[in-house]
């Protein structure tokens, strides 16, 4: 029981670290790319572009915790590939995130949709690789919490 709460706390801390690092890295990359393209390189605008990523990563981490706790606590004998569920969720979230951020870039930087789509995709590929690594580490601790 003590170990369980400890592992859940570790998973929660990992989620918080993921969101903080992701938003910082995302904002820095957005600012850098915008200044490279000679666009408006304000910190506030760069942070706003990364807002959909922050919201979606929050939703995904909550969903992941929910699935792992349900699968391992209520149905311990079921063998479901949790990693597959997480990957499919990440891929769909990537598409949603790309479009939302593209619309935001189009609106905030006042650029064409083609340019904004390319701009956003570059940033999100880096952010989603980071998210994937964190999801892997977090799910390891969540499974440990569920089975202990």
């Amino acid at each position: 029981m003590i170990f369980q709460s400890a592992f859940y706390s570790i998973a929660l801390i990992i989620s918080i670290i993921e969101i903080i690092t992701g938003s910082i890295i995302g904002t820095i990359i957005t600012k850098w790319l915008a200044s490279k393209k000679k666009w408006d390189s304000l910190f506030k605008v760069a942070f706003l572009v990364n807002l959909p990523w922050i919201l979606l990563s929050l939703i995904l981490s909550i969903l992941e915790t929910f699935y792992i706790s349900i699968i391992y606590m209520d149905f311990p004998l079921i063998t479901i590939n949790i990693f597959m569920i997480v990957i499919v969720n990440l891929l769909i979230a990537f598409v949603i995130n790309t479009i939302l951020s593209t619309l935001l870039v189009h609106r905030l930087y006042r650029k064409e949709l083609n340019n904004s789509l390319f701009f956003v995709t570059l940033i999100l590929i880096i952010l989603y690789i980071l998210m994937f690594i964190f999801a892997f580490i977090r799910s390891y601790f969540l499974v440990l919490a569920a089975i202990s």
Partner: peptide, 30 residues
């Protein structure tokens, strides 16, 4: 492109919900 993006957005949001509902139903029934 804007209409295309909006259509993809709606379809992917629906897919997200459907996929999670399917997984939940599968877990409940197995």
């Amino acid at each position: 492109l804007s209409i295309g993006l909006l259509v993809i957005l709606i379809v992917s949001i629906l897919t997200f919900f459907l996929w999670n509902i399917i997984v939940l139903i599968y877990i409940q029934n197995s």
